[in-house]
Simulated assay, not measured.
Amino acid sequence: MRDPMPLAEMKNYLGRQEVPSDFDEFWNQQISELPSSFNYTLTPQNFGLTNIDCYELSFQGTNHSTVYAKCLFPKNSTNIPTVFNFHGYMGQSSDWSDLLQYPAVGYGIVAMDVRGQSGKSTDERSVTGNTVKGQIVRGVTSGRDNLFFKDVYLDVYSLIEIIAQQDFVDSDNLAVFGGSQGGALSLVAAALNPRIKKTAVIYPFLSDFKRVLEIGNRDEPYDELFRYFKFSDPLHLTEDKILDALSYIDVKNMAHRIKSPVKLFTGLEDQVCFPSTQFAMFNRLNCDKKMYPLPEYGHEEMHVHVNDMIFNWITDSKIQIKTQME
Rank of each mutant, 00 (worst) to 15 (best):
V212L: 04
F274M: 08
R257V: 11
S276V: 06
V188R: 11
G267W: 01
K230N: 06
D233W: 01
N286Y: 12
F205Q: 02
C287A: 05
S180I: 12
Q271A: 14
A189L: 05
A184E: 08
L243I: 12
V272K: 05
P275A: 02
S186R: 08
K263G: 10
G216S: 03
F177S: 09
G183I: 05
N193K: 12
G178I: 05
Q271T: 15
N173H: 06
I258W: 11
A245E: 00
I242F: 10
K198P: 08
P234N: 10
I202P: 06
Q271Y: 14
K290P: 01
T199E: 00
P221M: 02
D244G: 12
G298N: 09
K241L: 14
M291S: 05
V251Y: 00
L235K: 09
E214H: 01
G183H: 09
S207R: 03
L206C: 00
P204R: 05
Q278M: 10
M291L: 10
Y203A: 06
V188N: 12
S247C: 05
L235Y: 04
G267P: 08
A245V: 06
E269A: 15
F229D: 02
G267D: 04
L235M: 10
V188G: 12
L185W: 11
V176G: 06
N193G: 13
N253C: 13
F226L: 02
P295K: 06
H299K: 00
A191T: 12
D219L: 11
E214K: 03
Y203E: 07
R227N: 09
L294D: 12
Y248A: 09
G216Y: 00
Q271W: 13
A189M: 07
E220Y: 15
H299E: 03
M291Y: 07
A189K: 00
S186L: 08
